[in-house]
């Protein structure tokens, strides 16, 4: 199991949720994981129902069996000041640079520096050891930028190493790249069973592979329970309205005669079934597309009660059951 687990996915597919559930799942049985946020959205804090995360590793959950999940929202500006201090003892100069707008420049506009700082911090956590020589974290899970930007985000160090040909940024970029391109890292993509996210996932995988970044799994999120199976769906087209009306009536929903309460339900219910059938067919198509990617697939159910902390533990259990952690 790779120690750096990067979770990406198209916007709206629930990648933050999956990343959090994965961090919980990996922490089970006494392990310690760090869940890292890089986009400053405070999605992790919202998910764990805590206040906004500072730029500080902080315990946010305990996993079954005594494991612990820590979380960190990386702030590129503070990360940069950290580096300046660490490498150059530039605490004071850092403030001066900040006044000039240089820090702002470096972290928001200068090509890729922001991304280098973010991935750099995550890699530092992966490699960090305590005094006894044990890894500080068993696993680091990153809630990464969306699929459309993930390859550039992870690969930016290569670009930066080319752009800054010498100097600490260059060295830093190369060190980060060594971790990211090794089996130490796995990049997972979260998708839904819908056309656009699946298409984006396929494109993302091609891009990751072209950049020789290690692709992990595809995790299909929010999978709806199967209510009607293939036999039912076939019957939806063939069944007579009156027999459905009678069944509804027998179930206690009113009269089956024309205009009766049960009879009036038949059309709306069959329409909903037709919509379900259409969606089911589309989902099957998308499943087939995902199947062709040649990657292990995981599936997480749609939590009908909406996402909350309890749901997160449920998803973590599901991930463990499927051997995804």
């Amino acid at each position: 199991m790779s120690r750096l687990q990067v979770v990406s996915g198209k916007g709206g597919t629930g990648k933050t949720t999956v990343a959090a559930a994965l961090a919980l799942a990996l922490a089970t049985e006494g392990k310690r994981t760090l869940l890292v946020e890089v986009e400053g959205r405070q999605g992790i804090a919202q998910l764990f129902e805590t206040e906004a995360l500072p730029y500080e590793e902080r315990k946010i959950a305990v996993a079954p069996g005594g494991g612990e999940v820590y979380a960190l929202a990386i702030d590129p500006e503070l990360a940069l000041l950290d580096y300046l201090q660490m490498f150059y003892k530039l605490g004071g100069a850092g403030r001066a640079l900040k006044k000039l707008g240089a820090i702002d420049f470096a972290t928001t506009i200068a090509p890729g520096i922001r991304d280098v700082l973010l991935t750099g911090k995550a890699c530092e956590a992966v490699r960090r050891k305590d005094k006894k020589g044990h890894f500080a974290y068993d696993y680091v899970v990153m809630d990464a930028p969306p699929t459309g930007r993930i390859t550039r985000f992870l690969n930016v160090n290569d670009e930066v190493a080319g752009l800054a040909k010498i100097g600490p940024i260059h060295n830093q970029a190369q060190a980060v790249m060594r971790v990211l391109k090794s089996p130490e890292t796995a990049v997972h993509l979260v998708t839904l069973l819908e056309e656009m996210p699946v298409q984006e996932t396929a494109d993302g995988i091609a891009e990751l592979r072209a950049a020789r970044l290690p692709v992990g799994r595809v995790i299909v999120n929010m999978v709806r329970p199967q209510v009607l199976d293939a036999a039912d769906l076939e019957l939806v087209g063939a069944v007579t309205r009156s027999s459905v009306a009678q069944a509804l009536s027998a179930a206690g929903l009113g009269g089956a005669r024309r205009g009766g309460n049960a009879e009036k339900l038949v059309d709306p219910l069959l329409r909903q079934a037709a919509e379900y059938a259409e969606r089911y067919a589309l989902e099957q198509e998308q499943r087939a597309v995902l199947g062709e990617l040649g990657l292990p697939l995981g599936e997480l159910p749609l939590l009908t009660e909406g996402m909350d902390l309890a749901g997160l533990y449920e998803l973590a259990t599901e991930l463990r059951k499927q051997g995804l952690s």
Partner: peptide, 9 residues
């Protein structure tokens, strides 16, 4: 800045 970014950049 030069130290940080590398002279060329």
């Amino acid at each position: 800045l030069g130290k940080l970014l590398g002279g060329q950049l």
